[in-house]
Amino acid sequence: MTDPMHPDPCGQIDITVCIPVYNSAGEIARSVQSIITQTTTAQVEILLCDDGSTDETRAIIAGLQRQHPNIRLLVNDRNRGRPFSRNRLVAEARGRYLTWLDADDEKYPEMMDRQFQMLERLVAENGPEAIDGVLVFTNFHWLWPSEDAPKLMTPPEGDHHMEELLNARFGGYLWLMMGTTETFRTVGPFDTALPRLQDLDFFVRFVQKCGRFRRIESDAPQCIYYKDDRARGAMQVWQSWCHIWSKHRQIFNAYGPENALRWRRHHYRVARRFAKANRDWLTYWFIAAQEVFFIARARARTGFGV
């Protein structure tokens, strides 16, 4: 058997791992290493897209490429934002299946093997059409910098994906997902107007197009997300939430005004949390003031408490 991390250049690639990178010199080696050490026997391609980094990121990637020939690098001419990089990655992926990793997170060694086996099993049991529009996800660890032990996160696997996405119960991320490359292409390109929250926008469109999430058979966490609200512009987060709200307003409204308004308040809360973590009090109070105005207007219009 050939070494999966050194695939035959003419052979078929099973999985492409897409990693958008921007100024991640400190973390990129650790993330890529978590792919290299995967136990899977599938042929893996690691596809990175450097979004115009100004630190040593590219030199580090070049070093990794010398050791691991299955790493391929795309370079943007300038910093064009993460959605643009993601679109390039999806377009360039050569694997049958596609999964993601962000430059500062890690996959545990068995993650890709379990997801790959599950997809292959679905095909063997029900034919190739069974995985059209299926994204296979896992439970994950979530670690705040202030905490010692990671928290186990278990996104629910039910029939009402859209509701769970909109009310934030699902809490899934792109790097939890593996599906056919065609599935990612069918959903359509990532929205370049969204510097943040591309995952949510993508999943909403995915579910709207009759996509389904399936959990792997194991409940054990398969990767770790180093959660950190610092050094991330709260205003950017806030604007992304506003974009999501206006873009998918019709879908929010389909769940009734009470739910739509309750879920909208969650957007305010998250944006305020980012502002607080960054001690950006101007943005914090700006968002808080808007929230007060929003609640007052909603009460006046509909006459119920939100």
Partner: peptide
């Protein structure tokens, strides 16, 4: 807004016009 009894093909967009908890 629940799933269809007969599954629809992936790629078909599904829209429900009626608010759920009217």
């Amino acid at each position: 807004n629940g799933p269809s009894f007969y599954p629809l093909r992936f790629g078909i967009e599904r829209v429900d016009a009626r608010p759920r908890h009217s």
